[in-house]
Nucleic acid binder design. Structure first.
Length: 898
RNA sequence: GGGCGCAUAGCUCAGUUGGUUAGAGCGCUUCUCUUACACAGAAGAGGUCAGGGGUUCGAGUCCCUUUGCGCCCACCA
């Protein structure tokens, strides 16, 4: 043995070494050539921008998922010789990072961010980022990500911050950004506004409080219900339906706010439903979006009763300073004493909670910055509707439309410290200066006494610019000009609105182009029983541990195969283990082939291929065609499954076993070794996007071994590294292919039968054999393949006899005689009329499809522009198909009376 | 209240222009340490493809419908 390989695939030593080889070799660059710098404008590149992970985040399976899919896409295109760029980077993740650093500071230094002050806190956060920011990207490297790390970006970098300012100012100048007091969602825990998307609604058990709204100077009352009694303090009206007989008489009268004694009107509004609850509604415009809308219609005053920590403010009279829940209890108790309480009952309702902090969000009036989203949404809607952007799977297009059609203005200001500060300055005269570069004076009154808006922008504002800001926008950099727009946007469906839709809006608005052509959405990963992974459940699978235990390839293959785009996936460690075994199978099959090449003697010449040789080649061709088709249709999981099946079952279990026999015969040796090497080489190429590490490692061994062998010329034009090897191209299916596949399938069935006979399981041949034989195999084939059948069946060839016409009726059956046991394979009478009919129907359908295709082809430009010889050929084909179709039709008609 | 998805072997899932015998992994049964691999090999058991109806020569696949689970969106006190 010249090339010794370890018995089991050692991913631990292989992965870091192979990754370093790729990275330092410059293979992640668009040209796979570190010296080449200019872009060829005639070649369209393939580009993905990474969904930037939170800079302080830790690797979880969601990352592993997107890296696996995006790396597969990237490697596949790179192997087609296309300039390929995958832009990496990370996100500053405003709230998440700020919270993390805050918690850290509290724990280690026992200081709050308020104590530190803004400047110092931001400084600390940068320090934190510098210290831990590379952790996540290194973990992404471990997954095999073939990103161009020299182009790594961070959303708070100077360049990207410049892009954010440019975007803000442009929108402002266009009138698409405005500032004003509106009812927004306020997170009392985080003390910031959050967008509608950042609020999660869940059904929770609450209490419904019903009480009396007393009419002024009267003993009459209107019953009203609420789940938030503290908001009574901010009530400015009671509304009833205009046609409600019960309350009609009160409309225009005055009722008294409990405890506070404020007089408010009874109004009529169609929004109130008569048959729900008491049919009367208290109106708190300061703390309820519906009430706010009603207040607008009726010109009601708006009273805020909560401060930024959700404590009762000065408008709450005696309750001022109390927490909202404390006030709720006290006020209710006071109302009870005052005899205003009717009842309280358990009630199931939807409660809005902050996605980050988890506490109950309060609708509040607050002065914030908003993006006027209508025009942007319209453009984004059209881009998908007219097909400039394709969403995979398609059903999400509907979801996307629905969201954009009902979208509301986007609150982009956050009362945080970590993020892009809003590029607006105010002077003492309250003039606003909106500028790309920090101004030194007010643009209106030239006052030098200016201060910048304290708020920062929603993290998603900068993320929305990601596909082009990472390439240099707003500058017309060579990267931007060449690589933008990008090709695919691959991410989880859970951020379709948060991120994808906003990138499309921003891309169209700022660059005038769609930011990517295809949106591929993967599903979420759940545990093996479909439950959401969570720390409290303790069912979290850590990808780092999984990689330690089973290797990166195993994890990647698991995430890629068995997942359908847009569908959630249940992951179990068992699956990863099974795929670790697959990686080892690849390794060992490779090891066998390398050994076979090593043992090849010089001076042999290639013989005619055997049936097995032709079969594995035909299978390979079939596979390459299928995988190509599936990749085009984004069906990576199915493609991976088919490669797996081919490699393990067809190649390793069947062909390798036959090859061992064939190599006993010197005349067949070279032919066999070449076929082994070719099949392995093709498999490695196909597998590489799925399992890059084992395949790269084996490629190196295989290539070196071949170059040292009598068949060295085979590898003469192979590149050093598989990562830049060419993706296999399929040849057209030859006519012989199907016959070879059928013949070999018969041999496989026979072999199985013999193994059963040997195990004394059953002497009857399977129906399947009968069917295959009936489909057109001959005794001659079995005779010719006798040695193969004998060796695979585990019997001595001399013991195996194949007899024809054994039964009383000549030509009825073939018998395989093994020693004293006989396997009978009937030849005639096996054709099932129903089956025959269905076969006929299918052939007819196929022929008709071919006719249609050819007719279309020949009626188009092809007939005029293509070389005459080619057109002639197609015409001949068409004629042949027509003839066949006619024949089949006649048979079909006849069969109807069968 | 709308919209979407899922329901296939004991478990977890593939199965995308409808087409011979519905597949895989794990688990299970029985053999085999055969010179690539026990992280293996061989053979096998196990499915009325949720129920019902329809279209078709042919349906897991298309249409209608029922049931059960899950998700998204939505302002009902």
């Amino acid at each position: 043995m010249k090339h010794e390989l370890p018995k089991a695939y050692d991913f631990k030593s292989t992965e870091p070494r192979v990754y370093a080889l790729w990275e330092t070799g410059g293979y992640f660059k668009p040209w796979n050539d570190p010296n080449k710098k200019d872009f060829d404008p005639n070649v369209k590149p393939f580009v993905i921008s990474i969904p930037p992970p939170n800079v302080t985040g830790e690797l979880h399976l969601g990352h592993a998922m997107f890296v696996s899919v995006e790396d597969l896409m990237t490697r596949y295109h790179r192997m087609q010789g296309i300039p390929t760029l995958w832009v990496p980077g990370s996100d500053h993740a405003g709230i998440a990072t700020q919270l993390m650093v805050e918690r850290h500071l509290l724990k280690t230094e026992e200081v709050t961010r308020e104590e530190l002050g803004r400047e110092e806190f931001v400084k600390r956060t940068w320090a934190w980022k510098k210290k831990y920011g590379s952790m996540i990207t290194n973990q992404i490297r471990r997954l095999g990500a073939s990103c161009d790390w020299d182009r790594e970006r961070f959303t708070l970098d100077d360049g990207l911050s410049g892009a954010v300012r440019e975007a803000f100012v442009r929108l402002y100048e266009k009138g698409l950004i405005y500032r004003g007091p509106r009812l927004i969602n306020w997170s009392p825990g985080l003390k910031t506004a959050v967008s509608d998307l950042e609020v999660e609604y869940g059904e929770e058990e609450a209490v419904l409080y019903t009480f009396k709204y007393m009419l002024k100077d009267s003993t009459e009352y209107i019953p009203v219900a609420t789940v938030r009694p503290e908001t009574i303090l901010g009530d400015t009206a009671v509304a009833v339906h205009p046609d409600d007989g019960r309350y009609k008489k009160y409309i225009g009268q005055t009722v008294i706010v409990p405890v506070l004694g404020r007089a408010i009107p009874v109004i009529a509004d169609e929004y109130v439903s008569m048959d729900f609850g008491s049919g009367a509604l208290k109106i708190t415009p300061g703390h309820d979006p519906n009430d706010y809308a009603i207040a607008q219609r009726h010109n009601l005053p708006i009273i805020s009763v909560l401060d930024e920590a959700a404590k009762i403010n000065e408008n709450g009279g005696p309750y001022q300073g109390q927490d909202r829940f404390e006030c709720r209890a006290k006020l209710w108790a006071d109302m009870k004493k005052a005899g205003l309480v009717i009842k309280e009952e358990k009630y199931l309702t939807t409660i809005p909670r902050s996605q980050r902090g988890g506490e109950i969000v309060e609708p509040m009036i607050s002065t914030q910055w908003f993006v006027r989203i209508g025009p942007l949404a319209q453009a984004a809607l059209e881009a998908v509707k007219d097909g400039r952007i394709q969403i995979v799977p398609e059903r999400f297009e509907k979801v996307y439309y629905n969201w954009l059609e009902n979208i509301k203005d986007w609150c982009i200001s956050r009362q945080l410290w970590w993020g892009h500060r809003i590029p607006v300055w105010y002077c003492e005269n309250n003039h606003m200066t909106v500028a790309r570069a920090d101004p030194s004076e007010c643009a209106t009154c030239h006052s030098k006494d200016i201060h910048q808006d304290d708020d920062v922008l929603d993290t998603w504002f900068s993320s929305g610019l990601w596909p082009f800001s990472t390439l240099g926008w707003p500058d017309q950099t060579p990267d931007y000009k060449y690589f933008y727009p990008t090709s695919y946007m691959e991410t989880g469906y859970d951020i379709l609105f948060f991120w994808v839709a906003r990138m499309i809006m921003a891309g169209l608005e700022f660059t005038g182009q769609v930011p990517f052509q295809t949106v591929y959405l993967h599903g979420l990963i759940r545990d093996e029983h479909g439950r959401k992974m969570s720390k409290t459940y303790g069912n979290v699978i850590d990808p780092l541990t999984v990689m330690d235990d089973f290797g990166t390839d195993a994890l990647r293959f698991t995430l890629l195969v068995g997942a359908t785009p847009g569908n959630d996936m249940n992951l179990s460690v068992k699956k990863v283990e099974a795929n670790r075994n697959f990686a080892n199978k690849i390794w060992n099959a490779g090891r066998f082939v390398i050994g076979a090449i090593d043992s090849l003697q010089p001076g042999l010449s290639a013989a005619e291929p055997t049936l097995a040789d032709s079969w594995i080649r035909a299978k390979s061709q079939q596979l390459v065609r299928e995988v190509g088709r599936l990749f085009q249709a984004f069906q990576y999981g199915e493609a991976g499954r088919q490669i797996h099946e081919f490699f393990w079952s067809d190649f390793a279990d069947w062909y390798v076993e036959i090859a061992k026999q064939q190599m006993q015969n010197q005349a067949a040796q070279e032919q066999t070794v070449i076929t082994l090497a070719r099949t392995l080489e093709m498999s490695l190429r196909l597998l590489h996007p799925f399992t890059p590490f084992v395949t790269e490692e084996l490629w190196g061994h295989l290539r070196r071994t071949i170059l040292d062998s009598p068949i060295a010329n085979m590898a003469a034009d192979w590149p050093d590294a598989l990562i830049v090897a060419r993706w296999p191209e399929a040849r057209d299916a030859g006519g012989a292919e199907e016959a070879i596949l059928n013949d070999f399938a018969l041999i496989q069935e026979i072999v199985r039968s013999i193994r059963n006979v040997r195990a004394e399981k059953s002497v009857a041949p399977s129906k399947r054999i009968a069917a295959v034989i009936a489909a057109g195999a001959q005794t001659a084939l079995l005779q010719a393949q006798k040695p193969v059948i004998a060796s695979l069946g585990g019997v001595d060839e001399s013991q195996l006899t194949i007899r024809e016409s054994l039964s009383s009726k000549p030509g009825d059956s073939i018998a395989l005689v093994i020693g004293t046991l006989e396997v009978y394979i009937p030849l005639a009478g096996m054709v099932d009329p129903a089956q025959e009919k269905s076969r006929l129907a299918k052939e007819l359908k196929d022929a008709r499809a071919q006719i249609e295709r050819l007719e279309q082809l020949l009626s188009g430009d092809f007939a005029n522009k293509a070389p005459a010889a080619l057109v002639g050929k197609e015409r001949e084909k068409l004629a042949a198909f027509r003839e066949t179709a006619e024949k089949l039709e006649a048979q079909w008609k006849a069969s109807k009376f069968m």
